[in-house]
Nucleic acid binder design. Structure first.
Lengths: 142, 142
DNA sequence: AATATAAACGCAACAAATTTGCGTTTACTA
DNA sequence: TAGTAAACGCAAATTTGTTGCGTTTATATT
């Protein structure tokens, strides 16, 4: 039985071809993917936008994925590899290609109550800039 | 001459009543404001939504404001008080009332090249959770 | 293996926020 | 004071996320 099927079964979700494929795509990716990126990777006929949306909602609800917002008004989804639903590393977002990279090597301070009475439930750090590939292309363009 | 007028003149922008008022509102606020929050503070007749939008775009372009995205898919704008266009403190966002608070007292590590070749232009840390006021209201509701 | 049923699906449509087009008004310069 | 580019208002398009609803399908049970 594939890893993807395992994940779905353990979460109590049905193993439809579509959901298995979405999980597999997330398994293969080392960085969080937007709905559009996921849809683009789906085989041939693909799935309806809404179906992908609802699948991801379902995954969120049972806690097998988390989602991050990195300053460009797009949700991106990743499997909860860390065990916790909190992601404790910063994300780098390229302003040119829009791709997100997990900076798992970088340590961050975490906050639970940065100011008296302010209870933190979610913490996110993103760095926007330009990735090596896009930087190189710009150099060539000159 | 008012501070707001000064800012506009120095930036090479025209001092229309609308833009002066937007700058004044931003000057009076200690936290970043969304377009809706700005529009709500405008006197009587106010300005068209699009006019506010284009004014903020213009301010961004000349670098007198910066904008932050704090996980709720809304841009919020603040004057570049720090001198640099980078804001180096985290923002707290209440998931109930949606208001943003600058945690200027909290120090963060800043990154310029977290990974070889990845050049950072913008850094943002936000903490989502519940603010003291909303937490209290929820207690009362029980 | 057949069947019942709740989960998953596709299509249409809605919603919120941002963005663009375009013709008119207005602040500023000469 | 006149000319001009900047700023404005209105309408409409775009983008992303979300809901409603009737149909299909995976799965548990017989």
């Amino acid at each position: 039985m594939s890893h993807a099927v395992n994940i779905l079964k353990k979460a109590g979700l049905r193993c439809t071809p579509g959901r298995v494929e979405i999980i597999s795509i997330l398994l293969d990716s080392e960085h969080p993917l937007s709905q559009e990126e996921i849809t683009a990777e789906l085989s041939k006929n693909g799935l309806d936008r809404v179906t992908v949306y609802r699948a991801l909602e379902a995954f969120l609800k049972v806690g097998i994925v988390h989602r991050v917002e990195t300053g460009d008004r797009l949700w991106r989804y990743a499997l909860c590899a860390c065990g916790s639903r909190k992601h404790c590393h910063p994300h780098f977002v390229c302003r040119e290609c829009g791709r997100v990279e997990c900076l798992t090597g970088v340590k961050l301070p975490t906050f639970t109550e940065p100011k008296p009475g302010y209870k933190v439930e979610e913490q996110e750090t993103y760095l926007r800039g330009i990735c090596p590939e896009c930087a190189e292309q710009q150099m060539e363009g000159i």
